[in-house]
Nucleic acid binder design. Structure first.
Length: 216
DNA sequence: TGCCAGGCCCTCTTTAGGGCCTT
């Protein structure tokens, strides 16, 4: 039943019956609970298997970012000095999300920052969150590791840009997501029993992915 | 100067610990 539901939902993605927003944050650190803030949001909207919209904004976190983050992301304090406040950008991004479901690589990280920044401006989103990292760990067990960059290279996904910039990471995650949906569909086609990703996930991951697909 | 978190998941497990992944 779950497998059939999943297969139907994959079809919904391929047919463009629904759309999904794939997003990525660059931040001042790892934890909003420790005062870290978002400094860049990048996102793409997938419809009918193609990217139909893009969103990218730098945002001023209200304090200087560390040399490590400057080096890691390529985003400098000078670049952020002219950026709009986080609250302004996040309000625009909440509008961009609309009612869509969301996808991110290691979604628990991006969800924490999205929830924290939207809570600051009393905004929210109705969609469910799916994690390409959790799916890849089940689907691509032969991959050297499950970092986004490794998976993109391992799947021979073409791209020209810099990892650790929000829009490029969001685009690469989107193409990885489409590749995974195609591979799930192919495994279902080759097997008498449809490949049932949902039942292969752990209880906690199942809860997340299951709620995501149930909205399709 | 060095460190800071949280969720998932495997295993030498479940009354726990540690690696992976994100910035």
């Amino acid at each position: 039943m779950a497998g059939l539901r999943l297969f139907r939902q994959e079809y919904a993605v391929q047919s463009g019956a629904e759309s999904v927003v794939v997003l990525d944050f660059e931040t001042t650190g790892l934890s909003p609970d420790n005062g870290d803030r978002a400094i860049e949001i990048g996102a793409v909207r997938l419809q009918n298997g193609i990217i139909t919209e893009r969103f990218q904004q730098l945002m001023d976190p209200g304090r200087r970012i560390s040399p490590f983050i400057e080096d890691y992301t390529g985003i400098t304090n000078a670049m952020l000095a002219d950026a709009a406040p986080v609250s302004t950008v996040m309000a625009d991004f909440a509008d961009f999300i609309g009612d869509d479901n969301l996808v991110a690589h290691n979604a628990s990280f991006d969800k924490r920052f999205l929830d924290a920044e939207l809570a600051r401006i009393s905004r929210s989103y109705p969609g469910a969150f799916a994690c390409s990292l959790l799916v890849s760990r089940r689907l691509y067990q032969d991959s050297p590791d499950h970092k986004l960059g490794t998976l993109v290279r391992w799947k021979n996904i073409a791209g020209e840009g810099n990892f650790h910039r929000a829009l490029y990471d969001a685009e690469m995650t989107a193409y990885l997501w489409l590749a995974m949906l195609e591979d799930i569909r192919e495994q279902s086609r080759l097997s008498d029993v449809p490949f049932d990703l949902v039942t292969q996930l752990s209880k906690t991951a199942k809860k997340s992915v299951g709620s995501f697909f149930s909205r399709w």
